[in-house]
Design a protein around this nucleic acid. Sequence first.
DNA 1: AAGTGGTCTAGACCACTAT
DNA 2: TAGTGGTCTAGACCACTTA
Lengths: 242, 242
Amino acid sequence: MGGRPRYLWVADLLRRPILNGELEPGSRLPSRSRLARTYGVSEQVSRHALRLLVSEGLVEAKPGSGYYVRTVPQIHRFSRTDRTSGSGVDPLGREDLGTCTETACGLVSRRLGMRDGVRVFRTRCLGTADGVPVALHTAWEPAALTQGTLRTPADADPAASVLQRLGAAGVVVDRVVEEVGVRPLREPESSLLHLAPGLPVLVVERTHYQGRRPVETSDLVGSIDHCRLLYRLSLARQPRQG
Amino acid sequence: MGGRPRYLWVADLLRRPILNGELEPGSRLPSRSRLARTYGVSEQVSRHALRLLVSEGLVEAKPGSGYYVRTVPQIHRFSRTDRTSGSGVDPLGREDLGTCTETACGLVSRRLGMRDGVRVFRTRCLGTADGVPVALHTAWEPAALTQGTLRTPADADPAASVLQRLGAAGVVVDRVVEEVGVRPLREPESSLLHLAPGLPVLVVERTHYQGRRPVETSDLVGSIDHCRLLYRLSLARQPRQG
DNA sequence: AAGTGGTCTAGACCACTAT
DNA sequence: TAGTGGTCTAGACCACTTA
């Protein structure tokens, strides 16, 4: 077995017609045992090949039923511009998960430029498409900013954007910094999103600033199959940097 | 075996000390057979658990040697602002892979707002960190824009930004649109990046505009372990949208 | 009732690493 | 040379879907 692993060979044979469109999305692939018979390999090999295609996002396993060519999911674009900053899960249906107060720890307090132990509001909401959760937005802001007003995340109109709400509280947000990356899904996110822990997810760490002062920060965790980020930027004239 | 799969149990037992930092990065985990003996499971179960940790990015397998707690990789932030637009692999070392001409097809011609068959320059370069490739940048622009001048991607100073080069050719870029997503790595990218095909990668589809006309478009494909995108946006006053 | 995917056992050989 | 990870075989049971 010094050559190319056989499970890769089987996977190739299946991948080609999928990518070429010869196998329609939704159609069923040969079963584990059928593949083993037709290609003269063990069931473990065909299983390995099918799992690989699943991990590549081309195939979906339905226990008790079979392996199916994956239906191309609806893709949702989260729009970002230099004029607006949305409420977190903008192009999707929203399911509010409520606001609580907690004491800022480690990363959150650092992102808010505060020391540990300061009280913050934590607001969570789920972005849904056809009732299925595809993104989770968790936002933190110092409680001191709006406490006692009707502009706290808990009191204000949940449909309003952060910018509107904070603006009404006298906090003018003029800068946004977003850091985009990918990491494995963790608990408790995985429970809320109904996705397997360990699955890679798109993460946007966003911080809103008033001048140099951070006033709100949030994490957007989104399924890589459903979520895209769309940044539309107007460039200042005479750019100098390379 | 109706309960929780055993390989998940074994994986949990290993994951905890890794995330807690009790197992230093670089330290070796018990081998497949050793795990099987100590936890009273078959070797396939311990193997499954270890593969899971590898897929989660926590553990690295060195064939013939063992499984090791992964060293936290150096993270590179690709800086994006509303004032500049970099040359593709900015914070990294660059290895130019040359420019060729081809006829625009399907997606590329659509992104450039042209019909199929138009001639374009395709320029590729590799972003490297410590000599290891971590990002691949592929850019397309209509050949007609700069052909015959010294401002083609092949002739101009490769260290210059797209904005500088096109600006010198009389094409003033004033807008950028970037779409960020994650997808499995494909050939020939996987060969160039020395990463396994199927591995999820961060993808930025960037298009530069002069007014409404697209003048250059590119794909940045980056390892999710090494690459982050950093968007710093100044907000216009009086935002209206939610 | 038959078929399916998920999981599991108990073996095995190869190429490679460490000693 | 012993140990290791990658791959492979030939079985097996369970919960589930399909018919």
